[in-house]
Simulated assay, not measured.
Amino acid sequence: MIGDSLEVLWTWTPFLLEGLYWNVVITLLATMLGTCVGGVLAVLHLSPSRFIARGVGFVVSVFRNVPSLVLLFYAATLIPNQIDLGGTIVNIPDWLKASIALAASPTGFTALNLHTSILYWRQGQRRAAMLFIPNWLGGLMITLLASSTASLVGVSELVGQCNTVIAATGTTYLVPIYVYALCLFFALCYPLSLALGGLKRHMAAKYA
């Protein structure tokens, strides 16, 4: 049984790694979008206008408190599969929709934490301000783990690929396949986690 499971996993590893690739793509794009939008909101939050500052604060609260899974289904439903740009048809793939939906979390995170970091920097608290960087990387890892929900809207990321493999090989290999997927995620995230811890220690010592 173990030998059969290992053979199945070895045979399907390239297929599963292709799914993990899409997890990384979705994560990077969602984080990039979220960082850009969140950065703009963070700057606007510094506005001397109370109306603007409070409005931005409300928007940030929405981004931080709406479940990404809900936004994922909204994006899959409301964003069209194609857009007609003056006769040119542009396709919008599911992975792009997922990236847009998952950008909500890094948007809220960046807006709140960058705003706080700017205030710390202005007060001369360099250490507290610079901790935004490792915290931002931690948010990226959270988005990476959340990217596994993209399979629910048809994206062929790692979990979706696992379901395809199980459908092809039978439920006998369900547990080994999902455990293998967990190991692939761990192999990707654990080195990042170690690097993140080292970066925090380095920055804490540098700006002590």
Results as ranks from 00 to 15, higher is better:
26 I>Q: 03
33 L>Q: 02
32 M>G: 12
152 L>K: 02
178 Y>W: 13
183 C>I: 15
148 S>A: 12
148 S>P: 01
177 I>D: 10
70 V>E: 13
198 G>P: 05
93 P>C: 09
190 Y>S: 01
83 I>W: 14
40 V>P: 05
180 Y>E: 06
31 T>G: 04
105 S>E: 12
62 V>K: 07
13 T>H: 15
74 Y>K: 01
46 L>N: 13
191 P>D: 05
47 S>G: 13
35 T>D: 04
185 F>H: 06
26 I>F: 02
197 G>T: 12
74 Y>D: 03
71 L>M: 10
12 W>T: 05
149 T>A: 12
59 V>Q: 00
84 D>F: 06
150 A>C: 07
79 I>V: 15
54 R>C: 01
140 L>M: 15
22 W>T: 02
124 G>E: 03
102 L>Q: 11
11 T>F: 13
199 L>D: 02
11 T>R: 14
63 F>A: 13
107 T>H: 08
69 L>Q: 08
144 L>D: 04
21 Y>E: 08
47 S>Y: 12
31 T>K: 01
197 G>C: 01
34 G>V: 09
69 L>N: 06
80 P>V: 10
177 I>P: 12
144 L>M: 15
10 W>R: 14
132 F>D: 01
99 S>N: 12
46 L>K: 10
40 V>D: 06
97 K>I: 03
177 I>T: 15
140 L>H: 03
